[in-house]
Design a protein around this nucleic acid. Structure first.
Lengths: 342, 342
DNA sequence: CCCATTTTTTGGGGCGTTTGCGTTAAAGCT
DNA sequence: AGCTTTAACGCAAACGCCCCAAAAAATGGG
């Protein structure tokens, strides 16, 4: 493999000049630039990124850690991240943590071992103890997107999950639903907690309360939505509406309702979250909450790049989300309708 | 950031000893090992991966290049890859090429710039000219999975697409279908070409032929399947069965049929490919072809690791696929049935 | 106790690049 | 022409690690 030294020999200049000719062409005479370029071309030169990074102390690489590469929701976020990163001359590498902090650690370690400049985490399954300082700030350049830790100083970009959940519940209440259930994510998951809180706030404001058996935990997968729905729809006093904390689980619930001969939306309203592509391709089309995914990605990477360039930016950015009403919601049957006008 | 030199100073030994104490603990006295470890601990030492890789000439990192991170099909393949890679002490980094050879080049360049040891490509959208030698072999350690180039020496792991397509068509023929259409991928895509050939072979064997207007090209997305189906189902002599070259397009086609009031499977049979999770959650459940995804991933990474360790392994590995009959296929209406018994 | 052998440790070079500093040559000015 | 300013280039020092060859220390046998 050719090195600057080889080029220097052929071009008849020093390695320093080669380096400059390649990196700062304006710091060098046109003729030497040409000589160097020709020699580099002839040798098929490709700079050694390791040596360069070792010398410059930066890699221009950032790692995006995903909880699960199988989750569709992240696609557009990554598109947004790549768009900006590419513009700024940064490379994006994706790491799939598979919901496991230990696996995530491998990717975080890339910055400790100087192979990446920072981390953009889309998951909370991360090795916090090895990343956080005593004061709750991060030892490494780190930004979170979608997810967040409530008691830490890690910058984060996300939607207002509480507000979005209130939006959903108020929409259902207005239609006359009052038996509203929910299929949530993991109980320790900040997103799910916020959405649950939002639901409960809205219900409380209308002097309603979600009974405990109306809250079933899933893991954001199709199958878990299906199973959770089985549980909910087998209750003696079954809900007239289910708010699922992501679209996959809603689609799983939809299948369950179909198999139990419960008509959606006539007998059961279903709301998802995320507005993934499939939500428009199921039958009926899924009512859901849209997140500005690409924008989340763009904002998060900008935040991280700012941190890398030494700025102390806004630690928390909240982006707007919208309810998208489609075919899985309507007013409940008359006998299950809330009569108090709200 | 602490270095071996710092540790050496504190532990009162040389840097060479530190290095060996950390890497080959058995080549060093127990007492010095302890001293070194204690010092490393105290300093919060984390080895500099760049310097190490620069010196050892290997990174133990391999890059997986994806055509599109939004495509569900790759999830389990990556799981398989990670499983084996992790076992062998290799890191996996994922690059999303977004169907663009130029973007893919960035990831291939990682090995030219010594930041990765090899590439496992799941896409054919790659910068071939900068990778291939004159004889068709690869300049870098490279293995392809699922996809392949027909006229190159790049090792590849995939199913027998031709055979699988024959399986599909024969299944349809047996049911009595003879008006069989197809929604393919890109015309230059090796997979689609093979599947198309398999279809045509099976049809030819039964003295049938697919008319040109029965072949519509999609791009593996839900939307493209929907649009392609619109085209096919608007034909005056519309097909009684459509073989879609992936599940997403089949699900798109399903939606189209539903909107055109064409009953699936009574009036139209639909077969997908890949057996993604969603295929069991649509209505009716999708008949499809299963690929042993995790096994493909495992096999491909093993192949690549073999190459990295200097072996010249089998350049082509074909894995089995199976037809999974579900709810979107049945015999066509009597008036459209093939009467010759086959 | 000494010499031979084995085990453990050390010094220092080198991986390939960038870059601060010094040198030289060219250009600009009076 | 003689001076200064500026531009172009070269030298050599890092960056942090690993590992060879060689030295030092420990071990063992006579």
């Amino acid at each position: 493999m050719a090195t600057v030294k080889d080029i220097a020999k052929i071009a008849g200049v020093s390695t320093a000049t080669v380096s400059r000719a390649l990196a700062n062409p304006d710091k060098v005479t046109a003729s030497t630039k040409l000589k160097v370029e020709k020699a580099a071309q002839a040798l098929g030169y490709s700079p050694n990124g390791l040596a360069r990074s070792l010398r410059t102390q930066q890699t221009r690489t950032i790692v995006v850690v995903l909880p699960d590469i199988g989750n569709h929701f992240f696609t557009d976020i990554i598109k947004g991240i790549e768009l900006i990163a590419h513009k700024k001359g940064y490379k994006i590498l994706i790491g799939d943590a598979q919901h496991c902090a230990e696996r995530a650690k491998k990717y975080f370690d890339l910055v400790f071992s100087k192979q990446a400049d920072g981390v953009l985490s889309l998951t909370t399954d991360i090795p916090l103890q090895s990343i956080l300082n005593a004061d709750g700030s991060s030892k490494i350049p780190l930004v979170m997107a979608c997810e967040y830790f409530t008691h830490s100083l890690i910058p984060s970009v996300h939607i207002d999950n509480e507000y979005s959940a209130r939006l959903v519940v108020e929409n259902l209440l207005k239609m006359g639903h009052y038996k509203i259930a929910c299929i949530s994510g993991n109980e320790k998951n900040s997103i799910s907690i916020s959405r649950l809180q939002g639901m409960q706030q809205s219900l409380a404001k209308n002097r309603l309360k979600m009974p405990e058996q109306y809250i079933v935990q899933g893991d954001y997968s199709l199958q878990s939505g299906y199973e959770a729905a089985q549980q909910l729809l087998s209750l003696s006093d079954r809900p007239s509406a289910i708010f699922c904390h992501n679209d996959e689980m809603a689609i799983g619930a939809l299948k369950c309702a179909r198999e139990m001969n419960i008509k959606v939306p006539e007998q059961l309203s279903l709301i998802g979250f995320d507005n993934i592509a499939f939500s428009e391709f199921c039958q009926p089309q899924l009512t859901t909450v849209n997140q500005p995914r690409q924008l989340i990605g763009e904002t998060a990477i900008k935040l991280l790049l700012n941190i890398l360039s030494g700025k102390k930016p806004n630690p928390e950015i909240t982006l707007p989300a919208q309810l998208i009403s489609r075919g899985t919601t309507m007013a409940p049957p008359l006998d299950q309708r809330l009569l108090i006008d709200i």
